[in-house]
Amino acid sequence: MTKAVIRSQIKQKRKEVTAYEIDRASRQITSQITSCKRFEDAETIFLYAAFNVEIQTRFLDEFARSKGKKTAYPKIQSDIGEISFYCINSLKELQAQSYRTMKIYEPDPQLHKKVLPAKNDIIIVPGLAFDLQGNRIGYGGGFYDKYLKSYPEVYKLGICMDFQLFNQIPAEVFDVKIDGIVTETSYYLPF
């Protein structure tokens, strides 16, 4: 299957997922992540503000803050094809922005401090599909691949529901592999 076919199939399948199922899976994924040593050692957790039927990161944000960790969220700079991450104090500080057909909540670079990942930090990577070799199919903008290429030492963790995990998906030379995947039922690492 091509990336386009997989994207289409996953988007269709996600339409069948209820808010309750997303909430339950998000809590289960958070529980798995927060119980690992890598999370304990991280100073900053790089998250994304979920939209539509993505795994919700707000539970992970809340738990990280309760443990004294910083959380950072991406700001898309579509004019230069990049993302940058900014630390925030509260999810309420994120502002709705339109990108393509998506409404994404982002930090305001005028109000928030830009942050770069350190070796022990974790970046939670969104995606439509993942495979057991560490490959990921995103939304097609290439922002995360470009960003992750600049920080190979940061731990890259994909989160998704079980139906988004494949044995193998197509990968290009410019795709950056992730280091682990957490679903509502399993933790896959290392690759």
Rank of each mutant, 00 (worst) to 15 (best):
F166K: 11
E40T: 05
I10H: 05
Y48N: 12
P170V: 08
I76T: 14
T44F: 07
K67F: 07
K156C: 08
I6V: 08
T71P: 07
G140W: 13
V17D: 02
P190E: 10
G68M: 02
K15G: 01
I22G: 05
S90T: 08
R100F: 15
S186E: 10
A42E: 06
K119W: 12
Y20S: 12
K113S: 07
V176L: 13
F63S: 05
E153N: 12
P126Y: 01
Q97G: 00
T57G: 01
Y86V: 12
Q164V: 07
Q32P: 08
E40N: 03
T57K: 02
L128M: 09
F85P: 11
R58Y: 08
E43I: 06
I76D: 12
A25H: 08
I137H: 12
A50S: 14
E93Y: 13
I123L: 11
D162G: 05
I104A: 02
L189C: 13
T44I: 12
S31K: 14
I181P: 06
D23H: 09
D175Q: 05
P170E: 08
R7F: 14
Y20G: 06
I45F: 10
K119T: 10
D145K: 13
K114A: 05
I45S: 12
K149R: 14
D121P: 05
T57L: 10
E82Q: 11
E82H: 11
L94M: 11
Y48D: 12
T183I: 02
K149V: 14
I123G: 09
T101Q: 11
P117S: 05
V115L: 00
S150F: 06
N52R: 05
K119M: 06
L111T: 06
N135Y: 03
Q95R: 12
E106D: 03
R38G: 11
G140A: 15
V176D: 02
F130R: 00
E93Q: 10
Q9A: 05
I33P: 00
Q56L: 01
K69D: 04
D145I: 12
G140S: 13
S84K: 06
D121L: 07
K103I: 09
V173I: 13
F130K: 00
R27V: 04
R14V: 10
Y20E: 15
Y99T: 10
R14I: 12
Y188K: 10
L111D: 06
D23K: 08
T183C: 03
I137W: 09
F46Q: 13
K146T: 15
G68W: 01
P109Q: 02
K92C: 02
G180I: 09
V5L: 14
R38D: 04
K156V: 08
P170M: 10
A25S: 15
N52C: 04
E93N: 09
A19L: 06
L94D: 09
Q168L: 08
V173T: 14
